[in-house]
Amino acid sequence: MLYIVLPAYNEDQALPELLADIDHNCAAIPHQIVVVNDGSTDSTFDVIQNYAQTHDNVHGVNHEQNQGLGAAINSGFQYVLNHNYQVNSPDKLPAEKQDSPDIVITMDADNTQPADCIPVLYDEICSGADLVIASRYVQGGEQHGLSFGRRGLSWGAGRVMRFFAPIKGVRDYSCGYRAYRLRLLAEGTRQYGPNIIKSRNFSGMVELLLKVAPFAERVTEVPLKLHYELKKGASKMRIGATIWGYLQLIYQLKRNKWSTVKWAEE
Rank of each mutant, 00 (worst) to 15 (best):
C175A: 10
N111P: 09
I33E: 05
A216L: 01
P7L: 02
Y173G: 00
Q248V: 03
I196H: 00
A134E: 03
W263A: 03
E187R: 15
M107V: 06
V36F: 04
K92H: 13
R151C: 10
D38Q: 08
I243M: 07
Q78V: 06
L153S: 05
H59D: 08
S154F: 07
D21C: 11
Q143H: 11
N62D: 11
Q86S: 13
K198Q: 14
Y173N: 00
D21N: 14
C26K: 09
L185N: 06
R181M: 09
Y9L: 15
P119V: 13
P90C: 08
L224V: 01
H55Q: 14
C26A: 15
T54R: 12
R190T: 13
R171Q: 12
D21E: 13
N111T: 11
E142D: 10
A14V: 07
L19C: 09
V5E: 07
A28H: 14
S40L: 06
P30W: 11
V35N: 04
D108E: 12
S235G: 10
R171H: 12
V138D: 00
T220K: 05
G188K: 01
V120L: 14
R190Y: 08
W155D: 03
L18Y: 05
Q139S: 14
L131G: 02
F202H: 07
G60C: 04
V160L: 13
Y246T: 00
V87A: 12
G158P: 00
D102W: 09
K232Y: 07
I239A: 09
H227N: 11
A8F: 02
G68C: 05
K232H: 11
R200N: 11
H63L: 08
R183I: 15
F148C: 09
C126A: 12
I4Q: 08
L182M: 13
Y137E: 05
